[in-house]
């Protein structure tokens, strides 16, 4: 079974040379730490920066340079700043190659829910609806089951949707799954995890074809 860093490490392998990547808040943010340093990748933050670098050194933080999580950041050579409409133009116009975000539920038809729990505080969708509706290549980083032990990979989402039929791949602490016609196709198992354990934690239709390899991280 993987921890959150492990999930981020596995997703980092999906980041290819020349990609522009948008990272959501939470596990996705960790992905930046594990991208190979022999490839060229630029990270986009939807509040208006391309070419994000690491957090600033103490004393060098600038109130005018933040990421979408409102954290102080730095920029790398080649970076640019732009307004919010231009930023979402990059996203809607499919200029961003890969979007990695978290979710509360994913359904076997690719639907995703990650912005609202009725009856509890509603913080808003931020840029999530724009991202999931537009991106060609969306990977969801999430835990396979919730704190109550219930599966988050469902036949149909029960929470209000963020987008329909948009998720392509899910990486959890247990598995890598691809969303295909008819369900979640199991691609890889986390180290030490059996197909039966993944089956038990998946409420949606799990498609298992042949031997399922263990992830190499």
């Amino acid at each position: 079974m993987l921890d959150k860093e492990g999930i981020a490490k596995r997703i980092a392998k999906e980041v290819k040379d020349g990609y522009y990547v948008n990272l959501g808040i939470g596990i996705p943010t960790l992905v930046a730490n594990f991208v190979r340093d022999d490839i060229s990748v630029e990270f986009q933050s939807e509040n208006g920066v391309l070419g994000m670098g690491p957090f600033p050194f103490e004393g060098e933080e600038d109130a005018d340079i933040i990421n979408a999580g409102k954290q102080t950041i730095t920029t790398l050579p080649g970076a640019s700043f732009f307004d919010s409409a231009t930023s979402f133009g990059m996203i809607r116009g499919q200029h961003v190659d890969l979007t990695i975000l978290g979710a509360m539920e994913v359904a076997e038809n690719g639907d995703i829910a990650n912005w609202k729990i009725p009856g509890k505080m509603v913080k808003g969708m931020g840029g999530a609806m724009d991202l999931v509706a537009s991106a060609e290549n969306i990977i969801v980083a999430m835990m396979h089951v919730n704190k109550a032990g219930q599966s988050k990979l469902l036949k149909r989402c029960t929470l209000p949707l963020t987008g329909v039929g948009c998720v392509k791949k899910v990486v959890t602490e247990l598995a890598v799954l691809e969303i295909v016609d008819g369900g979640f196709k199991l691609l890889e198992r986390a180290p030490g995890v059996t197909v039966e354990e993944i089956q038990k934690a998946t409420e949606g239709n799990l498609i298992v074809e042949g031997e399922i390899p263990e992830m190499a991280i």
Binding site: S87, D130, A133, G163
Partner: peptide, 26 residues
């Protein structure tokens, strides 16, 4: 949605009364 919010501002700035976006469909 954030991108829709930004575009609703830009549209007002640019004299575009309305626009289509995939964000939020469904």
């Amino acid at each position: 949605p954030q991108g829709t919010l930004a575009e609703k501002c830009r549209a007002a700035q640019a004299g575009i009364p309305a626009f289509y976006t995939p964000a939020g469909f469904g």
